[in-house]
Design a protein around this nucleic acid. Structure first.
Lengths: 338, 338
DNA sequence: CTGAAAGCGCTTACAG
DNA sequence: CTGAAAGCGCTTACAG
């Protein structure tokens, strides 16, 4: 593990020497410049500029036993579902001087456990991660942390400490209600990765529960286990080609899968929604621009990011937030595909 | 700025006390467990487990004047152009114990300058950022850094130290060549944000240069200045509706814009590519699934991420890399839209 | 195989 | 308005 590298930027001592003052005074220059005489301040400013000096945050944090890092654990950063949250959250938190450090678990709970060690080694001021399913050992550890833990995306069960997101069950049920009211009765399911993507699995459960309530069930399913992408959607679709004629609507585990499903159906000359309807989940940026435009649930990711940031700012500044749980809701986008 | 928060995780001293050893021995437990007696090792392991102790990386880095953070500056994380790079890079770098810290400049060069201070305060082991246009002051500062600076995405000009990416000019020229060879002669341009997105601006220049060589030029342009998204593409398109009949192909500054352009044309009953052809740039994940599927340039982002990581690992482990500049190339995807 | 001393780069608390 | 001392949590280099 000789993977470390030395970084030799000037330190406060060097700046102090050049400006003819003590280290302490350099420190004051950054935290309380008003306390310095004009002359001193100017000399330090010159030295700082000459060296492009910036105080070492590691040292600051260490000395103050504080941290200005917020750790964010997500399954992946290549899915805009998480990126939209990260982006908004970072913007808000950076305004108040915090830095967001993102780590990806790759939808792997074992890796999540391991990453938690890595993350804690940075002594973050707070931890944000998708709720609410974790290994029991992780859950226990999270519970014992003295820093704020915010679980995002999923409010289906009780958060460890704080939660921001929406209820996957309720959202999927709203989508099902829409389809039922439009007269669709013969449902098929196309999805992937349900063993790892717990939120997708919950949505499928919610859909099944809805159908059961209405005296039916999924008449056909195709579930793969290799991540979400349009291409995987096409593969999954190919796997249930024969059963398509018995269905009038396809529930996809998310918009990525639905995208591939639409492509597959288009390539096979099957009209959507004429012969079969299709719905996704998430409302990605391009979902309105598919042909036909995709009916889906918008999960308000920017709001999740913003509310999480707001919650964290309260917590980190020592204010007790009004609510432990913030439901950011969702919105049904009924477009052309169903 | 009382935005800091204390994190009270146990320290090595507490672990040492519980295990009945010195701090030093705890330190050895993590770096050289073989040096310890079985009994000592076991007692420390128990204490570590009891406290969920993880060494404080800030303190380690400070003591060793090292850093295991790689700083990555990108214009935005909501664009998969950068996310794909980040993702691959992180995976590779984490394998060798480095952590990638991502910061967004929001396509703002002033903010980039400011962010550089923030980033340097973490004393990163290396800096990665999109090349190669920066404020002169930034460029000067980057040049003076003793840590590796890798510029990614764009190899159009000479990098400060190291470069990984492709030549925007060459890639756009290849796209133009394809269109010309297919017989398109009346070109229009639809884009946005060219003052900020320097790479997009370079592509437009390359396209203009190509047309000039062939004795023509853009017969119509619509350029907005509000970021890239399908919706912006639709707006831009609306702005040149009247001129469409004089054109046979539309060059879009990227796939996001092209997506909106396709939607606009579809909504107005204009056939693509029958009445007018459309091309984008980047090959986003859904571009093959638009209707018609989008002809574009794939920019091999995962390769850029992987090669950058490989380069960094060499540099950070003190090996001189074979090449200062790595051209990851590009690939033309000639699909249905042109 | 294990430990006491010193120091990484800062800042707090005290002193003047 | 400015500075000397002490310590945040580690690890290196030395000693035994």
């Amino acid at each position: 593990m000789s993977t470390k590298n030395s970084t030799k930027l000037k330190n406060a001592k060097a700046v102090a020497e050049r400006a003819g003052v003590s280290e302490m005074t350099v420190s004051r220059f950054f935290r309380n410049p008003d306390l310095l005489s004009d002359d001193t301040r100017q000399r330090i400013a010159d030295a700082v500029a000459a060296f492009n000096y910036v105080p070492n945050r590691m040292a600051q944090n260490l000395r103050n036993t504080t941290s200005d890092i917020c750790a964010l654990l997500v399954p992946t950063v290549t899915n805009s579902v998480f990126v939209d949250v990260i982006s908004e959250m970072s913007i808000e938190l950076e305004k108040v001087g915090f830095h967001v450090m993102v780590s990806s678990t790759g939808y792997d709970m074992e890796k999540e456990a391991q990453l938690l060690d890595t993350v804690m080694s940075f002594r973050p001021a707070a931890i944000v991660m998708p709720g609410l399913e974790h290994l029991p050992a992780i859950k226990e550890r999270l519970r014992e942390l003295t820093i704020p833990v915010v679980e995002i995306m999923d409010l289906t069960s009780e958060p460890i400490a704080y939660g921001v997101g929406f209820d996957q069950h309720v959202a999927q049920a709203a989508l099902m209600e829409h389809l039922w009211s439009k007269g669709y009765r013969k449902y098929g399911f196309v999805g992937t990765f349900l063993d790892h993507d717990i939120r997708a699995a919950k949505r499928k459960d919610a859909a099944s529960a809805f159908l059961k309530c209405h005296g039916t069930k999924f008449l056909a399913e195709s579930v793969l286990d290799i991540g979400s992408s349009p291409e995987v959607g096409m593969c999954a679709m190919a796997g249930m080609f024969e059963q398509l004629e018995h269905l009038d609507v396809l529930i996809c585990s998310n918009d990525d899968i639905a995208t591939g499903v639409l492509t597959f159906l288009h390539e096979h000359g099957i009209d959507v929604p004429g012969q079969i309807a299709v719905v996704g989940f998430n409302n990605l940026h391009f979902s309105a621009h598919l042909t036909p435009s995709l009916t889906t649930i918008d999960t308000r990711r920017p709001q999740i990011g913003r509310e999480t940031a707001r919650l964290l700012v309260d917590l980190l500044q020592g204010r007790e937030p009004k609510n432990r749980i913030i439901d950011t809701g969702f919105e049904l986008f009924a477009r052309d595909s169903a």
